[in-house]
Design a protein around this nucleic acid. Structure first.
Lengths: 202, 202
DNA sequence: TGGCCTGCCTAACGTTTGTTAGGGATGGCG
DNA sequence: CGCCATCCCTAACAAACGTTAGGCAGGCCA
């Protein structure tokens, strides 16, 4: 119960992390227990010592994906709360989401990629975690609006959906090797905060 | 070669359209030839009269997805070219993409959902079609910039990626039944064109 | 009428799927 | 030492997978 669990946990974590990467690349049904095991230098049967089923791995991967990006954004928000300008706070929140998505966490990218194609029962068991993350953003955007920094005719939910959608879509093209994630966050924050047309339009 | 093909084509088209819907919902590996056949009131073996393999269905679905949204946006652009304001042209282009994605075409949504998880060889055989669609947007945005309507410090490629990403993400939450797609397009165009913060930020 | 083409069928092939049962090695603890 | 838990293994199960071969009905054309 003391040191053994350390070994056990690292194996378990390795399985989860490789599963996330595979799910992200090939989709839920495209990844078999045997492929997961092979990527961990194990045999398929051994996975069932750590997990009861493929869906149990899946649920854990999906939940960890949201939890990680939630933690990243929460940290970014609390670090810039009060002191920074509205734009800088938005910039930091965006940066937190992008770093979690593109750098830290294969769990987060797996969640973005496969959530809509997993069995409905699995989706439901991760909805609560999802809602907490949405609430984090809505709270932040609500603060911005209450402080008068947000255009009064902008709907918070609409903007949050557009923003998170745009950020998650970077998964499809961004190559973290050359580019700088923080610089990407700056560009996105600028375009979203200021718009792309010259002068106000309606 | 004349009337027979009519019957043949409708069955073929039904297979493609059902396949698109299934691919969209369950991912590439999550859809079997037997499930496709069952959804068309056929048996799995019969599919091979119309298609050589599962991947051939897939390639056709993916290509049609891009071609449809390309046609929708091209029409919207040509209808508003010259006469309308920069904002209205952007609004119409967005509306064209959203209508194709959310209303017309299960092919387009299938492409958005599963493109990154299909075999690499299949991806390659649809890349040319994809590039043509990207070029359509870049041409339009280049025109806006040349006419001085686009902020000069906004990178066209960055904005196009953000925009298309944000639009495609509506697949994950938009329910076409109650909401109006055109009104959604207006909201998105407004937020993207004008930004969401009050006054210019940097 | 006889033959051909179209469109779908059944039945089977070899492989892969998720999952289970049972066994063997390792190492800490009495 | 002997015991027990941990951790992974092999072997097998039934089911589902993509694909193929061969056949049967019906309409077209000679």
């Amino acid at each position: 119960m003391t040191k053994e669990n350390l070994q056990s946990d690292t194996t378990r974590d390795r399985v989860l992390s490789t599963s996330a990467g595979l799910f992200c690349q090939h989709g839920y049904a495209g990844v078999s227990m045997r492929k997961i095991a092979e990527s961990c230098d194990m045999k398929a049967g051994s996975l069932y010592y750590h997990f009861a089923s493929k869906d149990e791995i899946l649920i854990e991967v999906l939940n960890m994906g949201i939890e990680r990006v939630h933690a990243a954004v929460a940290t970014a928000l609390s670090e810039s709360a009060g002191t920074a300008s509205a734009f800088d706070r938005l910039r930091h929140a965006i940066s937190g989401h992008l770093h979690a998505l593109l750098e830290y966490s294969s769990f987060t990218s797996a969640n973005v990629r496969i959530f809509r194609q997993v069995p409905e029962a699995v989706q439901h068991s991760t909805l609560e975690t999802r809602r907490r993350y949405e609430a984090l953003w809505d709270g932040f955007l609500g603060d911005l609006k209450a402080e008068g920094h947000l255009r009064s005719d902008v709907d918070i939910r609409s903007f949050r959906l557009m923003l998170i959608g745009a950020l998650n879509a970077t998964l499809d093209w961004f190559d973290p090797a050359p580019g700088d994630i923080s610089e990407l966050a700056d560009r996105y924050a600028d375009m979203l905060a200021n718009g792309i047309l010259v002068g106000p339009q309606s």
